[in-house]
Design a binder for these strands. Structure first.
Length: 486
RNA sequence: GCCCCCAUCGUCUAGUGGCCUAGGACGCCAGCCUUUCAAGCUGGAGAUCAGGGGUUCGAAUCCCCUUGAGGGCACCA
């Protein structure tokens, strides 16, 4: 079984360029990719651009970029359905000839009225088969009228269609609930249903792994395969990913496209790991898995059936884990573009790479995303710090004591020789005792003075990186500001 | 309205008849570490396994009903 799969697995990711890919789309791509890689099969990329009215400019480029960013490499394609119209026409003609399909001349207006009427009567909206039963004479008349018809499939009126879903098990639909779906639109493009099965067949797709929303169109596809006497692929319907309000993901939920996550500073490996765990699990404890481990262990049997609500907090945590795991040099390389883009314009570019190299280790274990690094470390770069002088008193010191403490610190630091973390600690820690201040309070004071923040990386290291000149200048400014509190 | 699917802590999940007085992770709370923050470590709160019926010596696990949620029902994918 396993070896048979190994030679024959061919799966595809088939997005339509009607928008940018969101988490759900990418999760589908990921599962297909993992399945292919696990079985040593092929992962094929196919762009389903058969709706020219909904096509979004640039969407396909974004789709490809997203896959590349995540490292989901494909073995064939991208194929474009818009360039394969002749295949669909050929199949539609064959179905027409073999009486599995018919031409339908109904106007969109008539269909809309029909549907509205059905809804009003609380009946399921369904094509009424008007053109299925045209007389020979009516056909000739309509043909002569110049109306461009669509091709509709003759859905069996009785019986039922059953298929085995690899995740859901046996699923059965009554054929009477299926309607005569359109195969070929009047603009000459196929509908999803036609193009999809034609390509899956022609491309020898072995397994269709797609989102749950397609489950109810699967019987239609099965019936089409039967009409064409083609062997259908195996199906596996993946659970959906929902927003926090349990609804389908949309713009309301904030970042939904994968590009947004890239821009917010999530790492592809974190994204992959997180997405893999949305609907799949290895066991009862493993959370962190590398790409290789995912490939090794991925299996459809461990895909869950329940829709998942995507939990951004957990993604943030996981991204932090991956950020901390980066080698320092790599962290720096990843951080630089974000610093460049998000540090205030007043900070001179190009940024000094030597300075950055010293700063980044202090930020690496504090950042959850790359995008928050500029924010976290902006005080390293700014000439003039903006902060509320009352921060000096936040630890409960009075203005007079604070003033004295900074004055003395300034005096001692001016005459400091070596300016590294150890030496600074050697000067400042005894000074706290000398001033009869707790280390926490005294260092807190200096922290505000040198960084403008009450929370920052360790004081001595921070001051060492800032350098003597900058620190003395900031302490002097701090002294001036604290005087306003007296 | 009709059809399909699903149902374990707030969220992601483990669990496939006895190992479950239900395990892990995120988040939350507390403690430790500590110059703040973060990280790390330790501990805690948090699920009468949606509800109700069965089946069985025994059910989160099997069956039925109810409820709830999601998806589909286009010349969109």
């Amino acid at each position: 079984m396993e070896s048979a799969l190994k030679t024959s697995v061919r799966v595809r990711f088939a997005p339509s360029p009607t928008g940018y890919p969101h988490l759900g789309n990418i999760r589908t791509a990921l599962f297909n990719w993992l399945f292919a890689r696990h079985h040593g099969g092929k992962f094929i990329l196919r762009i389903e651009d058969t709706d020219i009215t909904r096509k979004v400019e640039g969407a396909e480029g974004v789709i490809l970029d997203s896959l590349r960013w995540l490292g989901l490499d494909w073995d064939e394609g991208p194929y474009f359905q818009s360039q394969r119209l002749h295949y669909y026409h050929e199949v539609a003609n064959r179905l027409l000839k073999e009486d599995y399909a018919y031409l339908c001349y109904c106007s969109t207006e008539r269909l809309a009225v029909m549907r509205r009427e059905q809804m009003r009567r609380k009946q399921p909206p369904k094509y009424d088969g008007h053109c299925r039963y045209l007389t020979q004479q009516e056909k000739l008349q309509l043909e002569a009228s110049g109306i461009i018809p669509v091709v509709r499939f003759k859905m069996p009126l009785q019986g039922e269609t059953t298929f085995h879903d690899l995740i859901r098990g046996q699923v059965t639909f009554k054929n009477s609930t299926l309607d005569d779906l359109v195969l070929l639109k009047s603009d000459g493009y196929p509908t999803y249903h036609l193009a999809n099965i034609v390509d899956d067949h022609l491309m020898a797709i072995s397994h269709v792994l797609r989102a749950d929303e397609w489950l109810s169109s699967t019987p239609r596809h099965i019936v089409l395969y039967q009409a064409l006497n083609w062997q259908p692929p195996r199906f596996a319907h993946l659970p959906m990913i929902l927003g926090p309000d349990r609804a389908k993901l949309s713009k309301r939920h904030g970042a939904t496209t994968i590009v947004d996550y890239k821009e917010q500073g999530y790492l592809p490996q974190a994204m992959i790991n997180f997405l893999a765990l949305l609907g799949w699990s290895l066991d009862d404890r493993t959370e962190l898995l590398s790409r290789e481990e995912l490939i090794k262990h991925f299996s459809l049997e461990r895909v869950s059936k329940t829709a998942a609500i995507f939990n951004k907090r957990k993604l943030e945590w996981m991204n932090g884990v991956y950020l901390r795991q980066l080698r320092p040099e790599e962290f720096i390389q990843q951080a630089i573009p974000f610093l460049d883009r998000h540090l205030p314009a007043s900070v001179k570019r190009p940024l000094c790479s030597n300075y950055i190299r010293q700063i980044m280790p202090l930020l690496q274990e504090r950042a959850k995303t790359l995008a928050e690094i500029p924010q976290l470390g902006s005080f390293f770069f700014l000439d003039e710090l903006q902060y509320d002088p009352s921060l000096f008193l936040s630890s409960g010191l009075d203005a007079k004591t604070a003033t004295q403490a900074i004055e003395i610190a300034l005096r001692r630091l001016k005459i400091a020789g070596v300016w590294d973390a150890n030496s600074l600690e050697g000067i400042l820690r005894p000074l706290a005792a000398e001033l009869n201040l707790s280390a926490g309070k005294f260092f807190g004071l200096l922290r505000v003075a040198t960084t403008g923040c009450t929370a920052a990386p360790p004081l001595f290291q921070t001051m060492a990186v800032l350098g003597k000149e900058r620190c003395l200048k900031r302490l002097t400014t701090a002294l001036q500001r604290i005087l306003t509190l007296l």
